[in-house]
Design a protein around this nucleic acid. Structure first.
Lengths: 218, 218
DNA sequence: ATGTTAAAATGGACAGTGTCAGTATGACGA
DNA sequence: TCGTCATACTGACACTGTCCATTTTAACAT
């Protein structure tokens, strides 16, 4: 997998070789700050990602980030956009070639989110901290939209019964996935297996929902 | 409805009339701080609930709360416990007398959570801020357990098919409800109606899940 | 080569925060 | 009456985000 911070690194290097805007002392401090922010995020959690800590780790003055991010909120939003881009890439890759197998596609989508969240919990949580990031940011919204429209396209190819409001289904899937992850990361329950199917619980609850969507009585 | 901060007020008044412990200048500063905290929470959101702001609004020195809460985290946890107690009362009341109608009981449980969250979004969000509150706090855990066991009791009375792992079902319901609320409060989508059933979307997604739980194919 | 210019980086300052240490207050039991 | 001790107070510290004036820097025009 090529994650978005690396590809962004390549872009930064190209930019450095191409031209450096006036007064720019580092190669690309903005990207350097985002990279340090991600490191701090993974290690210390969101609270550790302060403007001053990021500046310290990048080796610049505490007020240097202000030239690239007007506020801490803006900095966290930029980091979140990178994270969301990674998640979008992963989910889209997971559901490709499964357009004609909607139930598998939905499970693959969910499984990708689960794995991403449990592997990098702090990154996942950052995505949903409305207090700290700007949900209306265009770059962030674009990445979120990529995930959502991928999910919609799966459901569009799979109208096997009379239920046709695929937005409702998409929201149901999103809600289930996000709700389970949130509560797991909050420690409200632990990983366990369904005692009937012997599947991991996060798979089992998705099965229930998928059955409800595709084999609905009313 | 009698919410828990009022009943706690009555207790505080009784205590004030009964006796005042040594050095206590206010009637019951701890409860007064929680009350001011709730007001700040509703108006300014979680970020506004600082130790110093609460102390200011209660008319005491900035370090007075330290005698009752060892940290801001502890103060927010105490507030969250009150909020969760309210939610527990509401949900339990909603599902009483519906033990033999499990599908209605589940919808009633969900609807109560939806209403609570949309009426008092800041209070609901506080409950799930793992960064800011102590999920392992006994008082908080007790109230959360009340909600969860109520949901379990509904499912226990309603094993209409071969699916018997009611914990999986309870977690699925909780996850769906919490996930939808979280994303709505985050502004990821707005209130809308299912275009097929003309039901509010939060009702529609619960119907899908309930169908999946009770009319599951596999 | 030599200014010019504008972005970028700097250091200092300010108000706000959580938390800790030391001190005063006041009700209670001896 | 005198300690005792929980409570509340003042003061301080380190840290934060953000603003400000200043200086540095690199690209550009001359």
């Amino acid at each position: 997998m090529t994650n978005n911070i690396d590809s962004v690194n390549m872009k930064a290097d190209m930019k450095l070789k191409q031209k450096r805007t006036a007064g720019q002392k580092h190669g690309d401090l903005r990207m350097e700050l985002i990279r340090e922010g991600l490191i701090l995020l993974d290690i210390q959690g969101i609270e550790g990602v302060t403007i001053r800590a990021v500046a310290r780790n990048a080796g610049v003055a505490h007020s240097a980030p202000a030239n690239h991010f007007p506020s801490r909120r803006a900095m966290l939003t930029a980091i979140a956009a990178i994270v969301f881009a990674d998640l979008a890439d992963l989910t889209i890759e997971a559901i490709t070639d499964l357009a004609d197998k909607p139930e598998q596609a939905i499970q693959a989508f969910a499984e990708t989110c689960f794995q991403f969240a449990f592997d990098t919990p702090n990154r996942y949580q950052l995505l949903w901290q409305r207090q700290l990031i700007d949900q209306d940011d265009p770059a962030l919204a674009k990445e979120m939209e990529r995930v959502y429209s991928a999910l919609l396209s799966v459901l569009r190819h799979a109208q096997v019964n009379h239920r046709v409001d695929i937005e409702t289904d998409a929201i149901a899937i999103w809600s289930m996935v996000h709700g389970y992850i949130s509560m797991r990361l909050d420690g409200n329950f632990v990983a366990a297996e369904d005692t009937v199917t012997n599947l991991p619980r996060h798979k089992a609850i998705m099965l229930s929902l998928i059955d409800g969507i595709y084999y609905r009585k009313s």
